[in-house]
């Protein structure tokens, strides 16, 4: 009789803890689902940078590309600066983002170099590192010329 009661007791205890465990697990699962971040890599697309007629001779031209992005419920725009340059018969596009820590480089016409104002990174006109801390050359972006509009387009 006493043993019977003891069995019943421990069985009930197990049920209670099992049920509490289920509730906790369900809630943890829900919160886990909700809280886990959603990240996605935006698909690349061709964006108009400059018209070939606007490109000055003898130096690259900075083009500011504005991207509308959806940041959660918040619509915002992201600016990206690219340098468009002639290269042989064609064109070349370099991202203006320094490969060291992400500052924006500018082109020094006299020196014919890209200079980073943050930690003194120096790149040549092809984007190769000449001095300073940058670990790799400026990122080269794919370019194409839209025959209909005579616009230089960059893939971002």
């Amino acid at each position: 009789m006493a043993l019977h009661a003891e069995d019943r007791r421990s069985a009930l205890a197990r049920i209670v803890f099992g049920a509490l465990g289920l509730i906790a697990a369900g809630l943890a699962g829900l919160v886990g689902l909700v809280a886990s971040p959603k990240t996605s890599t935006p698909s690349r697309q061709w964006r108009r940078a400059v018209s070939i007629f606007d490109l000055p001779p003898g130096q690259p031209m900075a083009a500011v590309l504005v991207d509308r992005t959806q940041d959660g419920w918040y619509a915002t725009s992201k600016q990206q600066v690219v340098f468009i340059d002639r290269e042989g018969q064609g064109y070349k596009a370099l991202s203006a983002t320094c490969q060291h820590l992400g500052c924006r480089v500018h082109f020094d016409v006299a020196k014919q170099q890209y200079l980073c104002p943050c930690h003194g990174g120096v790149y040549d006109r092809q984007g190769r590192v000449l001095a300073g801390p940058p670990p790799r050359p400026l990122q080269t972006l794919r370019v194409r010329v839209n025959e209909n509009t005579s616009d230089i387009e960059v893939e971002l």
């Binding site: 909700v34 886990s36 419920w73 918040y74």
Partner: peptide, 20 residues
Amino acid sequence: DHAWDSIRFITTAVRAGAFL
């Protein structure tokens, strides 16, 4: 500015958000 949008985001874009 964003309260309504954020609730809409919760119900439409967050996983299990509508259930939550």
